[in-house]
């Protein structure tokens, strides 16, 4: 038990050190941008994990949540002229509101119908952002101000990387506490056996809305950070495709696991780069890999670790004999 804890602490420290070194390895700005994207998507997928991974309600409207967060930050900073920090409070409030709007239908609509509802939500939000005048139409919003910390302007990808990394660490800490608490267990209880939840004195509607709200607050905050990082937002980013990608990140990485969410977010963010050599066969190969992964490794990449270990032990034993 103690051994397990120290080995866990060592691996966390190792990951953190690697994360801190990455920007010093001389990647160009483009690659660094993908790294930052990976960090932002990690926040979203950690949020999505609450509702889709743990509570078991498939949500394909997360790109809209991400978009609404981004637009809240973009419009409040450019039109109202408030600081990005203050805007983040509005963004979190926005996330909370979306959680209520999306969460209450989930009490009446179940399973695949809920998924369709979230898809509809995604499309409605995208079309509104695209066609309303005050959101800037297809052109979106430009020249969104950057964050300032102690007079330090967060303007390059490397600075953004460190800034968002700190936020991600904080988010992971909160997520860890929730997952390993009675709330985390209650979320999983809803997925495992919804009929028994209320006999434990847990109000089902409340716990479902809580899971939804957590996921949308995470998504909106990631959106707010994204707006300031990119400097502009455009409605064409927040499509159903992006929502699908978030779900894929969660499933490929491994649901209910913090490491899984982050691995999934980074793997899928980098997939276009890693598979670039395939040229026009990229989409085909990407889809094939995901299908194979779902069939042969349904519990995600985090489940691969123990499997590989097992394989090594087996080979080792064979060599010995």
């Amino acid at each position: 038990m103690k051994n397990l804890r120290t080995s866990k602490a060592i691996s966390i420290a190792a990951v953190l050190i690697v994360a801190l070194i990455v920007p010093q390895l001389g990647f160009n700005d483009y690659i660094m941008t993908i790294f930052v994207q990976g960090l932002l998507y990690s926040i979203i997928v950690l949020g999505l994990n609450f509702i889709t991974g743990m509570t078991g309600q498939m949500n394909l409207g997360n790109a809209a949540v991400f978009g609404l967060g981004a637009y809240t930050a973009a419009l409040s900073t450019t039109k109202l002229g408030i600081s990005p920090w203050l805007a983040m409070i509005l963004v979190a409030l926005m996330g909370w509101l979306i959680g209520l709007v999306l969460g209450y239908p989930s009490l009446r609509v179940k399973g695949v119908y809920l998924t369709l509802t979230t898809i509809a939500f995604n499309e409605i939000v995208r079309l509104c952002l695209q066609n309303m005048e005050w959101t800037g139409g297809v052109g979106g919003v430009r020249s969104i101000p950057r964050f300032h910390i102690f007079g330090f302007l967060i303007n390059t990808p490397v600075r953004n990387y460190y800034f968002i990394l700190i936020i991600l660490v904080f988010v992971i800490f909160i997520t860890y506490r929730i997952i390993h608490s009675k709330y985390g267990r209650a979320f999983i209880a809803v997925r495992d056996n919804v009929d028994a939840v209320e006999t434990c004195g847990i109000k089902l509607s409340r716990i479902k809305v809580q899971a939804f709200t957590l996921s949308t607050i995470y998504g909106a905050i990631a959106g707010g950070l994204y707006a300031s990082f990119m400097g502009y937002v455009s409605p064409t980013t927040f499509t159903m495709n992006l929502s699908m990608s978030f779900a894929v990140m969660l499933i490929i990485g491994g649901r209910c696991s913090i490491a899984g969410c982050i691995i999934g977010a980074f793997v899928i963010s980098f997939a276009p780069e890693l598979l670039r050599f395939l040229g026009t066969y990229y989409q085909f190969t990407y889809a094939l890999i995901i299908m194979l992964a779902l069939i042969f490794n349904p519990n995600g990449l985090v489940a691969l670790g123990p499997k590989i270990k097992h394989l090594f032990v087996k080979i080792f034993h064979k060599a010995e004999a």
Binding site: R185, I188, A189, R191, D192, N193, D195, A196
Partner: peptide, 10 residues
């Protein structure tokens, strides 16, 4: 419950 209703993955 008549047919046990536990949270099976916990």
């Amino acid at each position: 419950f008549q047919n046990i209703k536990l949270f099976s993955t916990l």
